[in-house]
């Protein structure tokens, strides 16, 4: 099995596609940065003992007035920009993967059931999905967080999930409707497989590949959404690091020419999302049987 994977076409294509390589390199670096942030960050920006106001609003180290260990300068609280970016990546990743896990599981299940059983369940699920789709994940998340006063990473994850599962449900349903017609499904039915076995053993594994593309695209969208919510002040609380909030703080200093407060966290966010999108583009083409290489 392992051997087959290493000799497979998909891996060969992966290593011969520059955008896939660049994309996954950026993604892996961000994930490592998120995991090992406490080890590599020059300071812990959320440890009040390590942060002092006397280092506030320092420029990057290569500019006049810059000083170590603040490679990319500091914000208005004296937190190092580089360290805060590394810790902010953790929040981005937690929210991103959290939403993919929760919304993905729920959406895939709903899509699987709706596609397989059809009928009233199907039309109800799809009507609900259409409604959430037109209200959009972004709008639902802003309104939910606006109405509830609780703040926290988990609350943000749930607020995004409320409408985000729809992406997965729609794709999964479409895929199930196609796979359902295959001969091997009929064969499984004819040999007396129960619904449960049919759904889990036969439909789920064969209908899931399109979901991988949705996961990749969704991860990018959710990471941008978390930053947006925190930027607007309805996302994670002030005590949590977030790229969006860093940019929100930096926005007020732009007029004073302190560009580094916005540009560095902004660049980190864009690189992270570009990486995921490059990977998603490659995956989409790789899994699309219509495109011949």
């Amino acid at each position: 099995m392992t051997k087959r994977f290493f000799k497979s076409e998909i891996l060969h294509n992966f290593f011969h596609d520059p955008s896939a390589l660049v994309g996954s390199f950026l993604l892996v670096v961000s994930i490592l940065a998120a995991i090992f942030a406490p080890l590599i960050a020059p300071q812990n920006p959320y440890d009040l003992e390590k942060v002092s106001l006397e280092h506030f609003l320092k420029p990057p180290i290569w500019m006049e007035g810059g000083e170590g260990p603040f490679l990319l300068g500091t914000d208005d609280q004296g937190r190092g920009i580089l360290s805060t970016i590394l810790y902010g990546c953790r929040t981005s990743m937690t929210v991103g993967f959290g939403v993919v896990l929760i919304a993905g599981t729920f959406g895939v299940t709903m899509g699987l059931l709706a596609g397989y059983y059809g009928g009233l369940l199907d039309s109800l699920t799809m009507r609900l999905a259409d409604t959430f789709f037109s209200f959009s994940t972004t709008l639902m998340a802003i309104l939910m967080l606006g109405l509830f006063k609780e703040r926290g990473v988990l609350v943000v994850i749930i607020a995004i999930c409320i409408a985000d599962w729809v992406r997965y449900a729609r794709t999964m349903r479409g895929s199930v409707l196609e796979v359902k017609e295959e001969v091997y499904i009929m064969a499984a039915k004819a040999t007396g497989s129960g619904d449960f076995r049919l759904l889990l053993r036969h439909l789920l594994p064969n209908a899931i590949p399109p979901i991988f593309v949705v996961i990749a695209v969704d991860l990018a969208v959710v990471i941008m959404l978390e930053a947006t919510l925190s930027f607007l002040g309805v996302g994670v609380p002030l005590t949590e690091p977030s790229l969006g909030m860093m940019i929100s703080i930096g926005k007020d200093y732009v007029y004073a020419g302190m560009w580094w407060l916005v540009v560095f966290p902004g660049a980190a966010l864009v690189l992270l999302v570009v990486g995921i999108n490059l990977f998603a583009d490659w995956l989409r083409e790789e899994l699309n049987p219509k495109i011949q290489r």
Binding site: A220, M224, A227, T228, F231, L232, G244, I247, K251, V254, W259, V262, G266, L269, V270, V273, V274, N277, L278, D281
Partner: peptide, 18 residues
């Protein structure tokens, strides 16, 4: 267009202001 998809609206706005 890939860059455009990867740039959140609020960042576009701030960069344009800058």
């Amino acid at each position: 267009s890939l860059f455009n998809i990867s740039m959140p609206t609020f960042l576009t706005g701030i960069l344009l202001i800058m």
